[in-house]
Structures are given as structure tokens and as C-alpha cells.
């Protein structure tokens, strides 16, 4: 029952395995829920193990079907993570812009992915809960203006996370799953950034963990994605 629509279409069409990693309660599941269903739930039950979802992203040059593994954030479940990022072509490492420890945790995940995941994996660093910051200014200089109405809970300056992302050649976005801000943009950027060489034709058997042997062939020679790719990617549209 694998879908084989658009077979033979000239446009490149491919399934991409994506894994979400990050500290507990940074909003991983909420980002996915926004991306997949354009919905938001205030008190979503904590994810146990991992949840699986899919969503298509139609770009002018390619159609990407994301097979998303949304992992549980609590440290106790961390031993399951390798199973989920194994053979993943892309990873969203999420932190909460109001919580400094969550960026530290995100950096650990990035390091682990760079060490252990597929060599060509495209990693996006995502600072979520942007709605809790009083302004979305790129500048990290804190305004001394007291905004009593809209308390700024941002604890991680954009510049700090961005500098780190550039250093590690990661895509970088700040998002709000609650308002939807930038959520599509992250997935579009990823969809554009996946090197063509790692895309495989759609419609094969399951691309789950069991399919490791099937999907590993292309993964040896892909290139790290730099910020230039991200910028270019963001300019393209996506009708997800």
C-alpha cells in the first residue's frame, strides 16, 4: 500500500527521515503538530519513546515527504535516541529560548549527531517558544525599556545561538509552535538543504529502522550544509 503517486514525474520526489531531539518540554511535539496539522495544544502529554508522523513538503524543485520521529526528551529515554537518528537524513535539534540549559543539551545532541549519525546529516538548530520573547529582533542587545505588559522571557540571545550554529554549519531558526511563526520555514529550509545525492526514490518498503541496510548506500558521500544553503533555502517557497 505504499503510495506511488506522481510516479514518473520529472520533479524530484523523495522520502526523508527526520528526527527531533532536545530537552524535555522544549516543544518538539508541538513543532511537529504545528507542521503536520497546523494545530497547537497547550498541555500536550509528554512523548514516551518516540512518536511517528509524516508530512509532505512541496517545493518548486522537489517534493519531500518527511518521515518524522519525534523523540521523548527526558534524559532517561536518551538511550533510545541512536535507534531513531540512525539513518536519519536530517535532524531538528530543539531548545527553548527561555531556558539556557536547553541550549546546552542541544549542543550535546549536535555533538552526538556529528559523531554518530550519518555523515551527511543535515542538522537544524531550532530555538522554540519565540512567542515568549517580547521582540523578535535578531539583535541580542537587550533593550532596557521596561515592557511590563509583555514580559520578555528570552534567556538566550539570538546572536549567541546563531554564532554557534554558524560555527557548526547548522541551519538555524527561532520558532513559535504556538503562533506558527517560522515553523514552515524550518521544514522548507531542511527540505531544500538535503543534498540531492542522499535523496532516494519514493515508494520503497518501509524506511523505518529495520530498513537500515536498504537506505545506507547513498549516505557515504554527502556534504555538510553551510549557512549559504540555509539562506538560499529560505527564499524558496513551500506549499506544505
Amino acid at each position: 500500500m505504499a503510495s506511488r503517486e506522481e510516479a514518473g514525474a520529472p520533479k524530484l520526489s523523495s522520502s526523508v527521515k527526520l528526527v527531533l531531539l532536545g530537552e524535555a518540554a522544549v516543544g518538539k511535539s508541538s513543532l511537529v503538530l504545528r507542521f503536520v496539522n497546523d494545530d497547537f495544544q497547550e498541555n500536550k502529554e509528554p512523548t514516551i519513546g518516540a512518536a511517528f508522523l509524516t508530512q509532505k513538503c512541496n517545493l518548486p524543485t522537489r517534493t519531500i515527504k518527511f518521515e518524522i520521529w519525534d523523540t521523548a526528551g527526558q534524559e532517561r529515554f536518551a538511550s533510545l535516541a541512536p535507534m531513531y537518528y540512525r539513518n536519519a537524513q536530517t535532524a531538528l535539534v530543539v531548545y527553548d529560548i527561555t531556558k539556557p540549559t536547553s541550549l546546552t543539551k542541544a549542543k550535546h545532541w549536535v555533538a552526538e549527531l556529528q559523531r554518530q549519525a550519518s555523515p551527511g546529516i543535515v542538522i537544524a538548530l531550532v530555538g522554540n517558544k519565540l512567542d515568549l520573547a517580547s521582540s523578535n529582533a535578531i539583535s541580542a542587545n537587550a533593550d532596557d525599556v521596561d515592557d511590563a505588559e509583555n514580559e520578555d522571557r528570552r534567556a538566550i540571545p539570538t546572536s549567541e545561538a546563531k554564532a554557534y550554529a554558524e560555527e557548526e554549519s547548522l541551519l538555524f531558526y527561532e520558532t513559535s509552535a504556538k503562533t506558527g511563526e517560522n515553523v514552515q520555514a524550518v521544514f522548507e529550509a531542511i527540505a531544500n538543504a538535503i543534498p540531492e545525492s542522499t535523496l532516494k526514490p519514493r515508494g520503497g518498503a518501509g524506511t523505518g529502522m529495520g530498513g537500515g541496510a536498504r537506505s545506507s548506500a547513498n549516505e557515504g558521500h554527502s556534504h555538510a550544509v553551510n549557512m549559504a544553503d540555509a539562506t538560499r533555502a529560505a527564499k524558496e517557497g513551500c506549499a506544505c
Binding site: 518540554a25 508541538s30 497547550e42 515568549l132
Partner: peptide
């Protein structure tokens, strides 16, 4: 106590 927990979380 490494951090002040997220008073500002979405919750």
C-alpha cells in the same frame, strides 16, 4: 541548582 527553572515555559 544549575538553573532557574522555566517560569516562562509555555505551561
Amino acid at each position: 541548582i544549575e538553573h532557574r527553572p522555566a517560569v516562562s515555559s509555555k505551561l
